Amino acid sequence: MLKKIIILSCLVLSTNLFAQNYNEQFTEICEKGKISESKDFLENWEKAEPNNPEMFVALFNYYLVQSKAKFDGPKFLGGTIIATDNDSISVSEVLKSVNKSDSLFILSQKYLSKGISINKDRLDMYIGRSTTLLEKAINTEFITSVKSIVKRNSVNSGKWLWSNNEPIKKTEDEFVGMIQSYINAMFQASNPDISEVLNISKLALETYPTNYILLSNIGVCMLELGKYQEAIPFFEKGLKSNPKDMILRLNLADAYVQLKQISKAKEYYNYVIENGDERFSGYAKDILKEIE
């Protein structure tokens, strides 16, 4: 649901509130649900205003919609074609639809990337790119797109632009929360690339060096990499920023369990049992039973 909301916001927020003819016309096209029929209009807009940031967003949305419309045949599940009402469709026809869809998606990304190259602080463009790439897969392009947001944020100090180049300010909590949604998706992948989660978290930490969420990410990555001793300082530093965070304490306890320092681990588990909510205290009690 979150992905759809973000993409739709790109559509809605990319319309112009000011008296700019092309933007107003595209607003009407969107409101009428005719974006898929707007190719000629968009081509004229591109010729007339080749550097208009809203034009790039409009073309991104157009080709994104077209890419989704091109593949309405059988669906794939683990490489297997799931039967549909039209079972007579051939595998070659399915693959043709997939290839056409992919080429249109790539085109949508090219327009958004070009828009970002000209409008380096347009956060809606960055979000549109990263979110749609995430829909496709957690791959090199997606990871690179997330890194580009983090790197730009360190340059502009959280001072971004949105639709119509309206200025917005992202606080530390807001920005880290946004990046964390991408990091969570990376953590939850079937074969997570821990090294890239670590890289992104470290990049963001350069701007927000005491952020407990980023510190926790790095600590968890260390645990996943078997670097238990190295994980501890990150969890401890995170607790200095947010002493009430129970996840940090549970992760610290886990690090000490892995290091066979059971008495130290019990201190943290007992703290969570005494001070955490039912979910965390219940988890701590279960772990204590296993290690005692």
Rank of each mutant, 00 (worst) to 15 (best):
L2W: 06
L11C: 08
V12N: 04
T15S: 08
F18N: 03
N23D: 13
Q25I: 01
Q25A: 09
G33E: 00
I35R: 02
S36D: 15
E37R: 05
L42Y: 11
N44W: 12
E46G: 01
A48E: 11
F60N: 05
Y62L: 09
L64T: 08
L64Q: 07
V65I: 13
V65K: 12
V65M: 10
S67V: 09
P74T: 14
F76N: 13
N86R: 15
D87C: 08
S88C: 02
S88M: 07
S88Q: 12
S90A: 11
L95S: 14
K96T: 13
N99M: 15
N99K: 15
L104K: 04
L104W: 05
F105D: 07
L107D: 13
S108Q: 02
Q109N: 12
K114C: 00
N119S: 11
R122H: 11
L123E: 06
D124L: 00
Y126W: 06
Y126N: 09
T131W: 02
L133H: 01
N139Q: 08
T140S: 11
T140N: 10
E141T: 03
K159T: 01
W160L: 00
W160H: 01
N164K: 05
E166M: 10
K169Y: 06
F175D: 01
I183F: 01
A185W: 00
Q188W: 10
A189R: 06
D193E: 13
E196T: 04
E196G: 03
V197G: 07
N199P: 03
A204C: 11
L205T: 03
N211Y: 08
G219W: 01
M222I: 04
L223M: 09
E224W: 04
E224M: 09
Q229S: 15
E230V: 11
E230H: 11
I232T: 12
K237R: 14
K240D: 15
M246R: 07
M246P: 02
L248R: 00
L250S: 02
Q258L: 04
L259F: 04
L259T: 15
L259M: 12
S263M: 07
K264Q: 14
A265F: 06
K266I: 11
K266E: 14
Y268K: 02
V272W: 03
I273E: 06
E274H: 06
E274Y: 00
N275M: 04
D277A: 14
E278C: 00
R279A: 10
F280A: 15
G282D: 13
I287P: 07
E292W: 09
E292V: 13
